[in-house]
Design a protein around this nucleic acid. Structure first.
Lengths: 327, 327
DNA sequence: TTGAAAGCGCTAACAT
DNA sequence: ATGTTAGCGCTTTCAA
């Protein structure tokens, strides 16, 4: 038999109410001696509160549900760390639900599961926005935030995201400042995130009065494998530099460049978006426009619990040896 | 007001029992028409079952609690994927609790939180074994398994792990077969995992009748940063090859080797343990003794739910360009 | 095929 | 300082 408040009460010769009070540390009310005795017994019996029952009775819930829909990159890793830290600070629990793939049906199911746990609020971390899932969250009457997702096509008030237009722009401008003119943009996908980054690139190029050859833009899926494949498509267009849609894409490009005898950064400069520790390991190390994922996690929690307004997390540029100064 | 079974019942003009049956898809009992109507209403009202209440009433729980205590490496990523897949197959939910650091106190708290959710069983994924946490799990009367942890010093019946002795042995033997004699062992820590790997190395060396110079073994913490630091300690001992305790350690070594003008694998061959996709990206790509983490995840679920006995997951060797054939 | 009612483990008035 | 009691949302007998 699993230990319950009732079994403890019997053993201790008190009422369940007293046990409840003792275990909730309501020290102002209860006699220290009994409280101690009861806690001792609970300990011995291997008791663990049934949160379900507890919530049911008190209508209080300090849990935040986090839903992760992950794909090739691990960007959410830093976000989770930020969430955990802040949640802990404000005395909330975190339950993570992981969808493990991009199957929309499965994700939908996970969203439902998360909602069933009656959390105070829900954070959805994903690469792409899915209106159907958002609709469910909206309907649930539970506060929620979309983390790392922002779309102009599906305007959504409740997001904490990086400004992907600014990211694309910043990366491109960095290369422009280094004197590059023929700049490619490689490996983004067709999601809102990808499109916004692309738009930033276009914006920066336009501002520099440069025309973009359609061949300079290659779509992909942010993965390492894909980076290798895309390398071939870049050749023969006279590019001196590229913005890689992710660190993994950049690693794929570097690998093929090494293999083909093309020197990075001398013959081809690379800057990447979403720089993780991998940028440091790459050879040469990758310059990147990085998002402060930890801060994004922290802010997500604040935002959710205090019902603050949506915001963009600023990005930061980390310079490493992968870009060459021209002229 | 959040939608409940009661509010739905009122709207539908039926009893709560009927609603419960309709939403539980007890189609054998209920009239299809009413069932459909009720589900429709629930949908409209944005209803989500309260799992807490549901479990309380039915005493049925299909949830597996997974506790992740992570540090430098991301080895648990593959494990989680395996767990998710299998759990889904056998119709169980997964809740992930993440401890985010190695703070034992915090981890203890997380273990308790997980237990409070009254899951069918608990999986603890960690790098090092902590007897206190295990004691809590033991006492909880809830089935549990230690994933990726096995210790001879703290013998524990309920584990699913790689055989770390075999891993160290296999890595070392590979280098021996390639003709190396002066082989280092770098970057493992003092946990049971590290010690077992070290023991495997010693075993293989002894079997080859080779004496190990104490300088050949360098302790560390599996991290990239640490790999860089340890490189200096390896120099001047005439090593032709090393076993790196993790992929991150190996990357750190390679980085410093590149920087120092030492050629890998010609002047120093490297094989690493725990090979992740990073091995592929490294330059040169890393040969590794890899654990099948996905399978470990799958097996953990089976093991837990069917109360099977503990087991070691076999390892596999992935050959890449980082080891040179000598003689 | 549906409803009435009891009860899961816990908390929070209210009473003592 | 402690006990009594009602009830949270749901499932499940038992009865109709």
């Amino acid at each position: 038999m699993k230990a319950t408040i009732k079994s403890i009460a019997e053993r201790a010769g008190v009422s369940t109410a007293t046990v409840s009070r003792a275990l909730a540390n309501k020290n102002s009310v209860i006699k220290p001696a009994t409280a101690k005795r009861i806690r001792q017994i609970a300990q011995e019996m291997g008791y663990h509160k049934n949160v379900g029952a507890s919530q049911l009775a008190s209508n209080i819930n300090n849990t935040i549900a986090v839903i992760v829909s992950y794909n090739q990159t691990n960007f959410w890793n830093g976000i989770i760390k930020g969430i955990l830290q802040r949640a802990h600070q404000v005395d909330h629990q975190v339950i993570i639900f992981s969808a493990g793939s991009n199957d929309p049906q499965r994700l939908m199911q996970i969203v439902n599961e998360a909602l069933e746990h009656q959390a105070t609020g829900t954070l959805l971390i994903s690469g792409r926005i899915d209106p159907a899932q958002v609709a469910i969250l909206k309907k649930s009457h539970v506060p929620y935030r979309l983390v790392s997702i922002y779309s102009q096509r599906h305007p959504e008030q409740h997001f904490i995201s990086s400004d992907n237009v600014a990211i694309g722009e910043e990366a491109t401008n960095y290369l422009l400042k280094k004197g590059h003119r023929r700049i490619g943009f490689v490996g983004i996908d067709h999601s809102s995130t990808g499109q916004q980054r692309l738009f930033g690139y276009q914006k920066a190029m336009a501002a520099a009065q440069l025309t973009i050859d359609p061949h300079w833009v290659c779509y992909g899926d942010y993965s390492y494998q894909n980076g290798q494949e895309l390398f071939a498509q870049l050749r023969g267009h006279g590019l001196t530099a590229v913005v890689a849609g992710s660190d993994m894409i950049a690693c794929g490009l570097i690998k093929m460049a090494n293999q083909t005898g093309i020197k990075v950064p001398d013959q081809l400069s690379i800057i990447c978006i979403d720089g993780s520790p991998i940028c440091e390991i790459a050879n040469p190390p990758l310059t990147s426009v990085t998002q402060d994922f930890f801060r994004m996690g922290v802010k997500s929690v604040d935002n959710l619990l205090n019902n603050e307004r949506s915001l963009f997390i600023p990005t930061k540029l980390v310079e490493r040896a992968s870009v060459k100064q021209l002229n």
